[in-house]
Amino acid sequence: MSRRSVIEMLVLVFFVLLPLAMPTWALSDFAIYFTYAIFAVSLAFLWGHVGLLSLGHAVYFGLGAYAMGVVTLGMTVLPGWSVIGVILAVLVPGIVAFVLGSFFFASSGLTGAFFGIVTLALAFVFERMAISSTWLGGMNGLMSIPPVVVFGHEIYDPLVLYFGLLGLLALTIRLLQVVMRSRFGLLLAGVRENELRAATLGHQTARLKVWAFTLSGMIAGLAGALFVSQFGFASPSLIGFSLSAEALIWVALGGRSNLLAAALGAICVRFVESQLSGALGAVWPVVAGLLFMTSVVFLPRGLFGEAMARLQVAGRRSDPS
């Protein structure tokens, strides 16, 4: 087993054992953190692996959240089953990401900072549309969204939520790792490193990026659906600027080029925030912002990304096999 898998296993074991040392009410908090972590992973895949910095990634999270809410509240002609909600919460952001991605990347396409600024402007657009849509509840959003129903049982037991979401998070990371190691994933890495070369080698880089963007949007949408069914309501703040900014902080602090590091970034920032926001209050966002800036300047690989990279190097040195 590689050093990297050992680290991943240890982290998983840690979170499996964690409930033993935690009061029950904290379990549901962690279930929410895991949900955010799934969102963070979708962003880290796009940013770290494909090299596309999306400044408005909450759009897809929010679309998933609203889709789930609309379906499970019975606002559509479809039966209000959770499974239909989840399917739509993955499909709708996926389709939107596919359409927007095709628009962004076709032929010469948007790159680097242009992509970032356009995605930011889009987050603005989507947030405004959510606010001004009366069907979606406007400023207040959709309220009383029910929990996920599995085989007729509403899932609200904290322990079940904890392990359910931990499992989904682990599964998402695993799935994306498989994708990253596949031929498609290697081509994406090639696009990140040198798009021109990948293109001259005959690869349709635009199509690769569109599919990567779509996949990332689908996972973000799934996270959004899981979020609202725990949290109970979907509001315009889920789709716009501020959640996008927060997700960037998680991923940058955790580590953009390592999915597990990004997930840990989300979990840690949310946990520390919940612990400190009582004591620090409104000072907390300033602290988070300062930490974020510091990591951008001094730790571009992120806290966990840096730590894991070093552990792996140390492992390689001490273990010649």
Binding site: A113, V286, G289, M293
Partner: peptide
């Protein structure tokens, strides 16, 4: 802040983005 991120275009976005968050919250405080 900013001079430490020269030559890294995307990082200038992140660094100044962080700065905007801090300034905004500083004004709230």
């Amino acid at each position: 802040l900013i001079r430490r991120t020269y030559e890294r275009l995307l990082d200038t976005i992140l660094a100044t983005w962080g700065l905007s968050l801090v300034l905004r919250q500083g004004l709230v405080l």
